[in-house]
Design a protein around this nucleic acid. Sequence first.
DNA 1: CCTACCGATCGGTAGG
DNA 2: CCTACCGATCGGTAGG
Lengths: 211, 211
Amino acid sequence: MTLRSVGTRSARGKAARFSPRAARTELRRTEIFHSLGLVLQERGIAGITMDEIAQRLGMTKGSLYYYFKDKDDLLYQCHMRAMEVSLRALREAAGLRLPPDERLRRVLVAHIRGITDEVYGAVVLTDIESLSRPRRRRYVAKRDLFERAVRDMIAEGIREKVFREVDVKLAGFAMLGAINWISKWYSPDGPWTSAQIAEGFADFLLAALRP
Amino acid sequence: MTLRSVGTRSARGKAARFSPRAARTELRRTEIFHSLGLVLQERGIAGITMDEIAQRLGMTKGSLYYYFKDKDDLLYQCHMRAMEVSLRALREAAGLRLPPDERLRRVLVAHIRGITDEVYGAVVLTDIESLSRPRRRRYVAKRDLFERAVRDMIAEGIREKVFREVDVKLAGFAMLGAINWISKWYSPDGPWTSAQIAEGFADFLLAALRP
DNA sequence: CCTACCGATCGGTAGG
DNA sequence: CCTACCGATCGGTAGG
């Protein structure tokens, strides 16, 4: 699984063929992810029922099964979509040939904004243990790809002396954990815009790596 | 609600009177919290059923209702217990008259070890939205007490020039978020001991505050 | 602390 | 995309 091959196809694994019908379905799927994110924020994990998600869209739960095979599939697709946003940021930053600290900063900012701006980024708070084994395997593979890329940037920064010597894996856990937790407390009505949080967090976390 | 008045009474609000009977009940409650933590780690949030928690202790779920009023009560008491561990660390560090950075370091280390050593620290991963309103209120009050104390230490460090100027609230969110997320990936069989994680995280997070 | 049971919730489906 | 429904799970209780 190379970096370039990830996320270039639609969540369903079909090549994107731009038929109006497929586009409408894809749009509806995104709206369902959005609804899932809102339910998660307001009602908590236990509130994620097919009924709740559907009602916010003026649908009944039965209709959701037109877009997703089952609840497990819906959660899985949402996880994948959120991760694809971050992987896209990774690929874009990789193409820019920036020093590792600046590249890491851009990836973190994009990753954070992906979590806050698309509400469904909060899906990271749900447990992956309830996903079916093959789905969990595929999701974890994608997540590991992102985590490893972050660690690689930290390691590169250490080699180039722009970062101090830290345990790369532990630092990665700390940085990504702080970011994942944002979905727990973030509200668009809060004291900061999502851009301020993204910049503030990236600055704070990068500071922990400075020599 | 002052700092000193918190956590000096048992979780049930009764004065601790050291009868053997009460002590046995209290011990059993702790075992139930422990079982809850294990279920959470292995099966995820959706796996937290009264049945699962009981079975690990060789009980049937009906017996749990001898120790807790209902499932909501069990989760609430577990939340409170975990927070009391951290508040105790706070009070101990407060008594030592250390510089703010060293005091903060000790609190973070104790807070992290509370989460990793007592498995039920993972209860922070469950949502408080499903708690009854009065319980959520009481828990949030206790949690805010801890969060505010952390922010106060950061602010004090800034005033004393041992920390650089940061947004105190945002820094607090980042530090505590990184720590809360530990329960998601920590395993006693992993590459680090809980002591190493605690020291490593405290060092990393404190570094982000250095001028 | 257990057995036996209920009632409600919720995922999922049939048929349209 | 909806209505009407089922089947299973799970919290909780009665009675011991």
